[in-house]
Nucleic acid binder design. Structure first.
Lengths: 292, 292
DNA sequence: GATCATTACGAGCCGCGTAATCATT
DNA sequence: AATGATTACGCGGCTCGTAATGATC
């Protein structure tokens, strides 16, 4: 069961095609076919049905393991390399969404103060790819946010050997035009607003998909705002284009009311994903963010 | 980083010798040397110092990952094979210590009732090897016991992708001769007994090592009883050879007093270790043990 | 007949063992 | 000198690509 075969297997399973997998991995059809055959011979079970290509029950089992296995393999390699300090002069943060809060900025300041010469870079990373990017060492740490019950961890799926720690938890608030009938309330329940029109602004507010996941169906999108500027969102809300659910600190502005969310009891949570730490700027960053 | 190389690396690191590792793995010195060289070339870092053989800092990091990685690899293979039902006609339980309690016996009865033709086998397994044996499929499930705070999981180290569930928690009692000055007490603190003489009976009572781990030093062994019979232990205690800490259900007998342990608040916990479950006798066993 | 997986086969590479070499005690 | 790790080298096997074959729509 060598890693190459596993990688090929997940590619085939995912694409449901030998030839596509071959193209993606830079092999010929033949090579892929032989690798799968070898893997099946090794474990002694058919992993795929052909024509159409579908994973068997046994293959399903292997798939469950394979992702984590490959992630850990990458993480092991990256961890070993980090010891040498290959990435000594640079700290790369992979942020999924609008996770660079005040706390993060502050921690970065601490890093700059202690290591003035290291370059700090923040790149946008797809939420699903954070673990892989941290594991492979493409980024040094990852930042992910989402909604969760207070002091509950985010559902990040399989993070393999990586550790996750909370860096911030903020209450949530619903943004609405100042003149909205509910604008004066002290707090409100999300269920009451399922029928309202919402703004889908993945970078600055809660994605509607995730909202639906925790609060049931509904929450139709009136418009989508793909910018990263909170002001843009505020303007849209003020103009009555729809509501938005945001962490309370980023709420507030002219013509906009921010009403705290009372039910369900949820918070906006930001978590840090990192691998093994030795010392140096990355370790300092993590320590500062987690309060030593 | 193929698994073979990793396996060789952990062997060399563990034995601190290329030649010994070669002997253990059935290779020549040369092959081991080449594998390590290839691995180091692959990750780009020296993993071992030679003469004497010692793992470097980078090697240490790799070691941390390697164990879990290989365990998961074995678990993946075993999980896949289990789908085919290679072990359909047999259920093998690996027990570390005296973990086959009434609950386990009862669950086994349920399995026999439902699957009359399957052979049930219980083998003794070293505590440290339970995870590996379950992962590789040598045994279908593992049973491990130990002391822990109420409803706290046992510290089993790395179990990789395996799941652990509690099957029993029993209060602890100190066994002492009926005439012992403390024999009439309703409960007592372990700290008061650190200076007493204890019986080291790993198969039927708490190992003294683990006792020291949770309750501090002391707890000198007066004698060691390696049998698996509780009666033997009771006889020794009655004769005044020493005290023993046992789960309360197995306490009691002529000439012996069992005084409940009050402090620290600890219980005897039995946990089940298992891989992925499909259906069949093993699944039934686990379900019965965990109460569906 | 077109698409796509498998099989046949040859070329190159990789990994092992044997044996010689080098280093450390 | 003896033990033990590394290097040299040749053989066998493995894996890939090309190309032919087979299966399925």
């Amino acid at each position: 069961m060598d890693p190459q075969q596993l990688r090929t297997f997940v590619a085939v399973a995912h694409l449901a095609s030998f030839s596509e997998a071959a193209r993606e991995l830079g092999y010929t059809q033949s090579a892929v076919s032989q690798q799968i055959a070898a893997l099946e011979g090794d474990v002694g079970v058919a992993l795929l049905e052909r024509r159409p290509v579908r994973v068997t029950a046994a293959g399903e089992r292997l798939l469950e393991h394979a992702g984590s296995l490959l992630l850990r393999l990458d993480a092991a390699r990256a961890d070993v390399r980090r010891v040498v300090g290959v990435s000594g002069g640079r700290v790369v943060i992979g942020a999924a969404g609008a996770t660079v809060t005040a706390a993060v900025a502050q921690a970065l300041a601490a890093v700059r103060a202690r290591y003035p010469r290291v370059e700090v870079r923040i790149t946008q990373v797809a939420r699903a790819a954070v673990a892989a990017q941290v594991a492979t060492g493409v980024v040094d740490v990852g930042l992910v946010d989402g909604v969760a019950a207070p002091s509950d961890p985010l559902a990040l799926g399989d993070v393999g050997p990586l550790r996750t720690v909370a860096v911030a938890e903020e209450p949530l608030a619903v943004l609405m035009p100042a003149g909205h009938p509910l604008a004066g309330r002290k707090g409100l329940a999300l269920a009451d607003l399922a029928d309202a029109r919402w703004l889908d602004a993945p970078d600055v507010a809660m994605e509607l998909d995730r909202l639906r996941a925790v609060a049931g169906p509904g929450f139709r999108a009136a418009a989508r705002y793909e910018g990263g500027e909170v002001r843009g969102l505020l303007a849209l809300v003020a103009a009555g284009h729809g509501l938005a659910l945001v962490p309370r600190p980023s709420a507030g502005g002219a013509g906009v009311a921010a009403v705290p969310l009372r039910s369900p009891r949820l918070v906006h949570r930001t978590e840090l994903v990192h691998g093994a730490l030795a010392e140096g700027p990355v370790a300092l960053l993590v320590e500062t963010l987690t309060g030593r």
